[in-house]
Design a binder for these strands. Structure first.
Lengths: 220, 220
DNA sequence: TCCGGCTAGATTGGATCCAATATTGAATAT
DNA sequence: ATATTCAATATTGGATCCAATCTAGCCGGA
């Protein structure tokens, strides 16, 4: 809706800190393996340690940090290997979700997907990176949710969360936006025809492109 | 090592509360869909709300509870359908882990697995249900860890955690213990021969038996 | 010199108190 | 009677303070 969208601060401090921490970790500002000093970070974000610790628990669940009782949290390495692993796991889980979704897909689902795709294209055209990342996410999750497997969708969502910060990187690159749009259209087309295998392979390619682009960014 | 192991209280209150909450939810004492009153629960467990909330964040990550800002946590339904879904997801992820593990399996890994299996058999013989559940877990995780995919192992572990309380139910039933032992031996045998497909199908059966047994418990 | 125990500082874990938000019910206006 | 507003209450979110635990460096003894 709003064109500027100056990243509104979330309704709770934990959610705010959670987003900040994700960025700090994925951008490498908090270096892998280093301990997380709660006092210093809390002060930096201008909150107390309580919401900070709750955010850290969430990140622990996502595997971005490790935890040892009475010793605290440590930044988990997110190397290229890790990224590849996450994408491999996504491949496995999303294939299952998509196959189930194709079986159950109704006309209303297709309409929702097309509306989501329209959003993606709108932001792609205007070059609004953050917004496009959000719309892209809605598109994919809408599809996954058609699987009728809520726990599976949850897991996939968590995997997306844990690599969130990278994605806006991806959409920042010029050519990638157009390709995403084209690939989505191909997926939608295959969905309409109920061609499960084709949908799966198209999405695999879709991911592979993202991995390839991100690999070059991460290797320097 | 210790044979008695009278469920020592964990070193932090959050971990204690976490275990208690898991039991309370999976046994149905906290009814699905009902809100979680932090004050009441904290008093019941004789801790403050701080560690309780951190435990709830962990459970949220596992999908045992839902969360809405400023409205709190709610017990998530864990119906038979959910259990089936969890096992289906495990099937997908564990197959990947096991195939990778078979490729990389060394003699030392096999030795560790056999030692783990010896533990399982020891507790199976004496009918120590809790201990056997623990040893069983060690056996499987040891195998998964041979995959060299730490994030994948993490995910699988989380899935096991979220249905932990059910498993001791399973091992309580008389005949199940002997079958588990026999099935593990079959898996070990196939592993020695490097027969990946056979390992996968044996583990699938292994899970299927557990699901079947748990289904009868959950349907009444 | 090397090892162990010990003390002081740093850091995390938890309890209590206050603030912010949501919910409930009653009073009022239509 | 129904809908709406507003106040009272319940509940969650967060800040501060204190306790428990870990870490690092020092000291004494073999």
């Amino acid at each position: 809706m709003s064109s500027v969208e100056e990243r509104r601060r979330p309704p709770t401090a934990q959610q705010f800190v959670l987003a900040e921490l994700r960025r700090a970790i994925t951008t490498g500002r908090l270096r892998p393996g280093s301990p997380i000093r709660q006092d210093a970070l809390a002060e930096e974000f201008d909150v107390s340690r309580v919401p900070l610790r709750e955010a850290l628990k969430t990140l622990h669940g996502e595997g971005l940090v490790t935890y040892q009782a009475h010793r605290g949290y440590f930044v988990e390495t997110l190397s290229l290997d890790d990224l590849l692993e996450v994408y491999r796991i996504r491949e496995l889980l999303e294939e299952e979700a998509v196959r189930k979704a194709v079986q159950r897909l109704g006309e209303d689902d297709l309409l929702r997907l097309e509306r989501a795709q329209a959003e993606v294209e709108r932001f792609a055209a205007t070059g609004q990176v953050q917004e496009m990342a959000g719309a892209n996410r809605v598109f994919h999750m809408t599809l996954f949710e058609c699987s009728g497997m809520p726990r599976l969708v949850r897991l996939i969502r968590t995997l997306w969360d844990s690599t969130d910060a990278y994605r806006s990187l991806y959409y920042g690159e010029g050519g990638n936006r157009e390709r995403v749009v084209a690939e989505h259209r191909g997926v939608l087309d295959a969905l309409r025809r109920g061609a499960a295998d084709e949908v799966v392979s198209r999405l695999d390619e879709h991911r592979a492109h993202a991995v390839a682009a991100l690999s070059t960014v991460l290797t320097p």
